[in-house]
Design a protein around this nucleic acid. Structure first.
Lengths: 221, 221
DNA sequence: AGCTCCATGTAAGTCGTTACATGATTCA
DNA sequence: TGAATCATGTAACGACTTACATGGAGCT
């Protein structure tokens, strides 16, 4: 149920068209929630039907013969945003595909296990770098969203508003670091195991090979 | 697409009934993927239809007049399990409800912000404690799953099999720690902001109050 | 007679994905 | 002429949730 609130929060410093919002979700800017345009446009219409946002039809600056719709927050939308921020929501259920796989790496070769950890590492290095660049942009007030939001607030609140955003992205950076450390420790673990086994074929040996292949109780031994 | 593989991996040390599996997902044991029985039973039938598992009808020990179905892995299921472990899958999209909310804490009071961080902390402390207990169980080979899996493998692989599981859960513990640290740093941040603002009402003042309430471009100022 | 555990299901709905689609305009 | 950007949609499907439902058995 967070997409709608991500939209409301963005639109608060609007007005924005669906296309504007899509771009914020699609690449870079909104780094904590991902959404596709096929989800965004219908959700905007729902939010408008519920009275949380209001759209106005504008001519397109690039193509004056067609139009676009820019949405802004209504007072009800504002209240809904405040309600959401105030409410303590349920934490999402644990569902970790990479860790699930890591539990069962013995079903493949150590070489592959290392590949998994390296891919994991790479992904989170890239993610961390993106976050880091974004933190920098926020600290230097280089993002349009920050500028708009600060412009709409009294000066004595600027520090806090900025601090919340920085704290959020720094937390995500710390998480990336934890993932990177885990992946690197995984590689180290494999190397230790390689050393401990005197086996020169270690890296290409499937552990836990089909020792008990699909024994069936209807085939009593 | 991970539920089916979680099921295959569990069933590998089977046979298990849907009810057995449900319990492993529901509470404690399988700490990396959560699923409900309403998802598990249909998926088991799908896996059987695809030939990855095979069920056999058994009498229930507690109620001999009714039956249950215990599934075991087929050779195709075994191959599918190996294929999945070998394949480098796509990382799931970033979607972080708590961090999203943290980005916009200025729409509520600092008192509420602190409540959010404290709830976050609590949740991950509990999760970490669960993981920690589970790591202990694995290290001492107290779980049925570990015992079955080790019994079905040659001794020289026991260390590696155990090491993968320990490494996985320790990684999850490290992640919990990062979350706990983040939440605690959030509380500290709020206290700093409280000190910096000389305002005695700080904790109950909504920042970013409706300074620009739903301005509409159709209402030019 | 009612509670709990075992064991299994269905139905409705939300959320999200990929893929398919269109139409205006500018630029090379 | 074709590609890229702006702008907006729909359709089909998959994953997951909540809620509703049943039926045997033992325990108090």
């Amino acid at each position: 149920m967070s997409l709608r609130h991500a939209l409301l929060a963005l639109i608060e410093s609007g007005p924005f068209t669906g296309y504007d919002l899509m771009q914020k979700f699609d690449h870079t800017i909104e780094y904590v929630w991902r959404a596709r345009h096929s989800q965004i446009y219908p959700e905007l219409r729902k939010l408008e039907a519920e009275g949380f946002i209001a759209g106005e039809v504008l001519p397109r600056q690039d193509a004056p013969r067609s139009t676009k719709v820019a949405y802004h927050l209504t007072p009800e939308g504002r209240r809904e945003l405040e309600r959401w921020v105030t409410e303590v929501g349920p934490q999402p259920a644990v569902r970790e595909p990479q860790y699930l796989k890591a539990l069962y790496l013995e079903f493949s070769t150590p070489r592959n296990a290392r590949r998994q950890f390296e891919a994991h590492r790479q992904h989170f290095v890239a993610l961390r770098d993106g976050y880091t660049a974004h933190v920098d942009d926020i600290a230097h007030e280089r993002t349009v969203l920050m500028q708009r939001r600060l412009a709409a607030s009294p000066e004595n609140e600027h520090a806090a508003i900025k601090a919340f955003k920085l704290h959020t992205y720094r937390g995500l950076i710390a998480r990336c670091k934890a993932e990177i450390d885990w992946a690197e420790a995984g590689v180290s673990l494999l190397e230790e195991l390689a050393g401990a086994s005197g086996n020169p074929d270690f890296w290409d040996t499937v552990m836990h090979a089909s020792a008990s292949p699909a024994r069936s109780a209807s085939t009593p031994r």
